[in-house]
Write a protein that binds this DNA or RNA. Structure first.
Lengths: 150, 150
DNA sequence: TGACCGATGCAACCAAGTTGCATAGATTGC
DNA sequence: GCAATCTATGCAACTTGGTTGCATCGGTCA
């Protein structure tokens, strides 16, 4: 899923006007291969299994990706941002589910919720750049493991 | 708006099964009198103008309020949580707008967006406890002051 | 070849929030 | 009325997630 031929990620990065480096290509590959949005910490941990890369580099790579539209920064119910593939990369916008028990986040299908806001956007005095829809609750794994206890 | 007769906040707190203290009553009053969700820092700063209260106390008050449903914790585009009045307090759920330039958050009218998710919730294996709809962009003040520049 | 430029690493820093512990003020049992 | 208890508070230390300053390294271009 989201797998590309060798060399795919570097050119995806360059197509967005950014310099491709080994670290950046790997960060993007990790993002692209994940079913669900990841924290910078998770990305760094994955990356560190194969090569030593500083966490600052991960943060900075993610920053430029978000800036360029290659990745998307998603807020969750906890204090860490999550990152997923962005609009520039064949990715339809979709809502997310955040489990307040285990902290996992999952992507929901784009059609899971129907959101109508054209009327609002047309008359709103500010500029709306993006919309985030997030459901918080308890995921099915945690439900099975012992309920929604606080 | 949201104004109650003297003594209203203490009893609102006690009705939720919590002990009312001067600090808690004030925190709740600040929340209730605000048009838009506030950060713990803002609440503490407001509170500190009239009495010395430790920031830990503010955090802990907010925690118990959220727990009791008196207040609501809202995530924003930055790293700080915002707090507003919760369901238990005559408050209809509504979406929010976050300005990525000035960091202000505003409440939108409950009808601003139409969100249909009954079908999804019915077939989703996890438990959905709440939904957050947030629009990010540039508020009208910042637009006036110089556009949507990064 | 040499000047430049941006990506990286590293360490220090910062902001938001949490935790441990001692104290003070109220509440309960007697 | 007094001791035992409970819990809200204050304070300091700590944690987490992220950012910044600065030196260096590796290309690129003239």
């Amino acid at each position: 899923m989201g797998k590309e031929e060798a060399g795919g990620y570097p050119s995806l990065i360059e197509d967005s006007g950014l310099a491709s480096t080994p670290a950046r290509a790997q960060v993007l590959e990790i993002l692209a291969n994940s079913q669900s949005p990841l924290t910078a910490r998770e990305i760094h941990a994955t990356l560190a299994r194969t090569q030593a890369v500083d966490r600052t580099t991960v943060y900075r790579s993610l920053d430029v990706f978000v800036e360029a539209g290659l990745a998307e920064r998603i807020t969750s119910g906890d204090r860490a941002f999550r990152y997923g593939m962005g609009r520039r990369s064949l990715h339809a916008r979709h809502p997310h589910f955040f489990c307040r028990q285990c902290g996992d986040m999952e992507c929901l299908s784009a059609g899971a919720v129907e959101l109508r806001m054209e009327d609002f956007v047309r008359t709103f005095a500010g500029l709306v750049e993006r919309v985030e829809v997030r459901m918080d609750g308890i995921c099915k794994n945690c439900l099975r493991r012992g309920g929604a206890g606080k």
